[in-house]
C-alpha cells in the first residue's frame, strides 16, 4: 500500500506539472491583459496536434517537432490576439466571451481537419524506470523535467530581466509602467503570445503521453485555472505548486475514494485552501 501511495504521489507530481504550465499561461494572461483566456486549452490542443502531425505524418523526430509545434501554437495565439483579444483588454466579460467563442471555432476546425478519431502518436520513449517496486514511465519523467524547467525559467526571466520586471510593474500599476517607458500594447500582445506558446509546449509534450482528440483542451484549461487560483493568481511558482498539489490530490484521492469523482478531490482541496488563504498559496494579499 505504501508503494502504491508513493508511486501515485510521484505520478501526481508529474501530471501536476502539466496543469502547472497551463496555469502559468492563465496567470500571466490575467495579470497583464485582465482576461481569463479559457481558449488556452485550445492552443494546447493545437500544439499537440501539430506535434502529432509533424512526428507521425511528416516523419520528424519528436525533439525536432517540438519547436515548430510551439511556434505554430504561438503563431495562432498571435493571430487570435490581433484579431480578437486586443479588443477585449481589461474587460473580463468580453475576454471571457471571446475566449469561449474561440473554443467552439477551434474545436470545430480541429474536428474537421483531424476528425473525432483519437490520434495516438508514435511512442517516443516506451520504457519505465523501476524504483523498488514503483514503475514510472520514462517519458513522464522527461515531460516533468522539461515542464518544470520551463516554468522555473519563466519565473527567473520574470524576476531577473527588464522585460519581466516591466511585466510585473505593468500588472501592479499600468499607468506608472507606461510613464516609465513600458510599451504596453506590445507587452500585452507578447504575454498573450507567450502564454499560447506555453500552452502549445504543454500540448506538444502531452502528445507524447496521451491520445489526442479535439475536445482535449477543455479539461486542461479547467485544471489550469484551478491550479492558478490555488497557487495564487500572478505567481509563476504558485502555478507550478498549484498544479502539483492538484495532481497529487487527484492521484491519492483516487486510491482511497471512488475514482469516478477524481476531479472533485482537487476542488475540495482548493476550497479548503481558499478558506484560509483567499488569494491562494503564493498570491499577494493586496
Amino acid at each position: 500500500m505504501v508503494q502504491l501511495l508513493i508511486g501515485q504521489a510521484l505520478n501526481g507530481v508529474i501530471v501536476g506539472t502539466l496543469y502547472g504550465i497551463i496555469a502559468l499561461g492563465v496567470t500571466l494572461t490575467f495579470g497583464i491583459t485582465g482576461i481569463v483566456n479559457f481558449a488556452l486549452g485550445e492552443f494546447m490542443m493545437i500544439g499537440a496536434y501539430l506535434t502529432w502531425y509533424l512526428v507521425d505524418v511528416a516523419g520528424l523526430p519528436f525533439a525536432v517537432a517540438l519547436l515548430p509545434a510551439v511556434v505554430g501554437a504561438a503563431g495562432c495565439g498571435f493571430v487570435a490576439d490581433q484579431l480578437l483579444f486586443r479588443f477585449t483588454r481589461n474587460n473580463l466579460i468580453n475576454g471571457l466571451l471571446v475566449s469561449i467563442g474561440l473554443i467552439s471555432v477551434v474545436e470545430s476546425g480541429a474536428l474537421l481537419l483531424w476528425s473525432a478519431t483519437p490520434k495516438d502518436m508514435s511512442y517516443v520513449l516506451t520504457g519505465s524506470v523501476q524504483l523498488a517496486t514503483i514503475s514510472l514511465p520514462e517519458m513522464k519523467l522527461v515531460v516533468f523535467a522539461l515542464l518544470a524547467a520551463v516554468i522555473l525559467l519563466t519565473y527567473a526571466a520574470l524576476s531577473r530581466t527588464w522585460m519581466g520586471r516591466a511585466a510585473y510593474a505593468f500588472a501592479q500599476n499600468a499607468e506608472a509602467a507606461m510613464l516609465m517607458g513600458v510599451k504596453t500594447a506590445r507587452l500585452q500582445s507578447g504575454v498573450v503570445v507567450y502564454s499560447t506558446a506555453l500552452a502549445g509546449f504543454g500540448g506538444a509534450l502531452y502528445a507524447s503521453l496521451y491520445s489526442l482528440e479535439p475536445a482535449m483542451g477543455g479539461m486542461y484549461i479547467l485544471k489550469g485555472v484551478e491550479a492558478a487560483i490555488l497557487g495564487g493568481i500572478g505567481s509563476p511558482l504558485g502555478s507550478l505548486v498549484g498544479g502539483i498539489i492538484l495532481g497529487v490530490t487527484e492521484a491519492i484521492g483516487s486510491i482511497y475514494l471512488p475514482s469516478a469523482f477524481r476531479d472533485a478531490y482537487g476542488l475540495v482541496f482548493i476550497v479548503g485552501i481558499l478558506l484560509y488563504r483567499p488569494s491562494g498559496l503564493f498570491g499577494s494579499d493586496r
Partner: peptide, 12 residues
C-alpha cells in the same frame, strides 16, 4: 471502478 469522462491519466 468508474472514471470521469475526459480522464486522461489512469495510473492511479
Amino acid at each position: 471502478e468508474f472514471f470521469e469522462p475526459g480522464t486522461k491519466d489512469f495510473s492511479a
